[in-house]
């Protein structure tokens, strides 16, 4: 340490601190593009919706379509299935949701075919409720796609969708 350092300790500290701080800000700002480049890009974000023709689906049948890289189950439910979904007491549910909120048109159930446990695709018309059953870790879903038994924490997710006309659904 020379004489001049002792005379003006404040200025020296200030310069070094300011430089370090400004440097940290710069490094942070430069790091952001390197991180953000892994987020969904503009072309991926633009492919947000898909249209599905459902005219050929009979009651009791279900089809699976790809949307944003994930399967979407579109099930045309029978009267019995609708009744069984709507008669459940909400208190018996792990994740209480009314079937009326999940299926706007009771005949059509549209949901992401992804088990909320660890992301496997459940099997259709299987399990204790004869609806959906995930083979990976044994989660049972009912005819409304709600979790009833097993490790999955929540019901299968319902994406945004609209009926463009009686035979076409637009998902997303």
């Amino acid at each position: 340490m020379s004489e001049s350092d002792k005379k003006k300790p404040n200025r020296r500290d200030f310069i070094l601190t300011a430089t370090t701080a400004a440097g940290a800000v710069g490094v942070g700002a430069a790091a952001w593009p390197l991180i953000d480049q892994m987020n969904p890009d503009a072309s991926v974000k633009a492919l947000a919706s898909t249209e599905v023709d459902i005219s050929g689906v009979e009651p009791g049948q279900s089809i699976t379509v790809l949307w944003r890289g994930k399967p979407v189950f579109i099930k045309r439910r029978t009267k019995a299935e609708i009744d069984s979904a709507r008669s459940v007491d909400l208190k018996d549910l792990k994740h209480p949701e009314k079937d009326e909120d999940r299926a706007k048109d009771p005949e059509w159930l549209v949901m992401l075919g992804v088990c909320t446990h660890l992301g496997c695709v459940p099997l259709t018309d299987k399990g204790d409720y004869n609806a959906w059953f995930c083979p990976c870790h044994g989660s049972h879903y009912d005819t409304s796609g709600r979790i009833r038994k097993g490790p999955a924490p929540t019901n299968m997710e319902v994406p945004k969708y609209v009926f463009i006309n009686s035979s076409t659904i637009k998902i997303g």
Binding site: W32, P33, L34, D36, Q37, N39, D41, A42, S43, V44
Partner: peptide, 13 residues
């Protein structure tokens, strides 16, 4: 061109 147009900050990188 995809990098230059669509990837976030792709043009910069």
């Amino acid at each position: 061109e995809h990098i230059m147009r669509d990837v976030n900050y792709g043009w910069l990188i």
